[in-house]
Design a protein around this nucleic acid. Structure first.
Lengths: 207, 207
DNA sequence: AAAGAGATGTGACAAATGTAATATTGATAT
DNA sequence: ATATCAATATTACATTTGTCACATCTCTTT
């Protein structure tokens, strides 16, 4: 299994190399220090797995990953992060990165690489919980508790689609004025102050 | 490393056992055929990893996983799925399951188990894309393509937090009028018609 | 029939919003 | 110094929005 390691810090790169080569079937075929090198190295060496730091000068790991995956969609890239770079994880996953690990866990890097090699996607401890839409757990809102009727809920959903009062009125066969009253009531009940906040609130909530 | 295998189908269980024991450091210490057995086996054997089918009679793998994790939050459970059981994945992750694999990929089971053993979370090929909130088709919007500047993006995010023009103005040290112009421009560029739609659009999009 | 309750509608008003045209400012280049 | 450009600001205006008080209208209950 051929691996390329890219990391700003040569000490880290070497440490990683040592760890990896403890696996007999593993060869580190190349090493680089920034995103641009990563792109070049990948293109020339086509390693089985690319192990790359996410924070690097010049081109960062994320951008490099994107570039590489654009060209080689099946590239197996494992990103290393120090900690709490949670913001990048979603992007990384979208690009098609195959792993997102904490540098700290030295002894999990080897198994992670093997898993990635077989096509799996691997997340370091704690990282899964950073995936929004997963942990970001939309409040399961108990609309009933606020005396929100079925009809009102419908209006809310229309607001959250961006309809104007006039359009909502037409949609549910009420006068525009009544729709205004409806919304005014809803805002009062929910302690919100305008339709934008209402829309946002609704979207962050599960019906 | 001690493993317990739970699967309806004894043929599958045995096949898995054979595969696993090709790893010399691995011992299959117990085998069961449904969720209830899984719970019992886990409690009595405390395996390092529990490998479990998700579809089983009596208690299914998901429920079993929940029960076990309720009692032992650090349990490392790897669920096996035939395919396209995507609906369960989010629940599984919420419970704290450490892996979700396709049964088909025989040769990825071993590395996956090792990764799980070190605390990583592993997803089989294709499975990542099933995570809603991720694939949940937030359009990866290329704001740059619409000439949205960094500052404009900031304004947009503030709109999506429900701030009024006046508040936004105070926040970023511009006059209210300028903020209005900003937003007017943004709406024009994005072909949207008011702040509510802008907020909705933004929330359904990844920065 | 009268009264009450609930949903719907109207009118009036202030505030916020969106648009457009036109300043003002400040920095840069010539 | 002048011309130029981008960013910011101002002004004016039409619309939309949110609030409130008060009508209607329709059922139901008594």
């Amino acid at each position: 299994m051929n691996i390329v390691i890219v990391d700003d810090d040569i000490l880290v790169s070497n440490a990683l190399k040592t760890i990896l080569e403890m696996g007999e079937d593993i060869t580190v075929t190349g090493m680089g220090q920034d995103g641009e090198e990563a792109v070049q190295l990948y293109a020339s060496l086509k390693p089985d797995v690319l192990l790359m730091d996410i924070r690097m000068k010049k081109m960062g790991g994320l951008t490099a990953a994107r570039e590489i995956l654009k060209e080689y969609p099946d590239a197996r890239i494992l990103l290393l992060t120090t900690f709490s770079d949670d913001e990048y994880i979603v992007k990384a996953l979208k690009y098609g990165v195959k792993g997102y690990l904490l540098k700290q866990d030295y002894n999990s890097i080897l198994p992670a690489i093997r898993a990635v090699y077989t096509g799996q996607t691997v997340f370091g401890t704690e990282i899964v919980s950073k995936i929004p839409g997963l942990l970001q757990e939309k409040k399961t809102f108990d609309w009933e508790a606020y005396d929100i009727s079925e009809k009102e809920l419908h209006v809310i959903s229309l607001v959250a689609e961006g309809l104007s009062n006039k359009e909502i009125a037409k949609e549910i066969f009420l006068s525009e004025g009544t729709v205004r009253n409806y919304i005014s009531n809803i805002l009062e009940k929910l302690q919100l102050r305008d339709r934008t906040r209402l829309a946002v609130y609704y979207l962050n909530t599960i019906k």
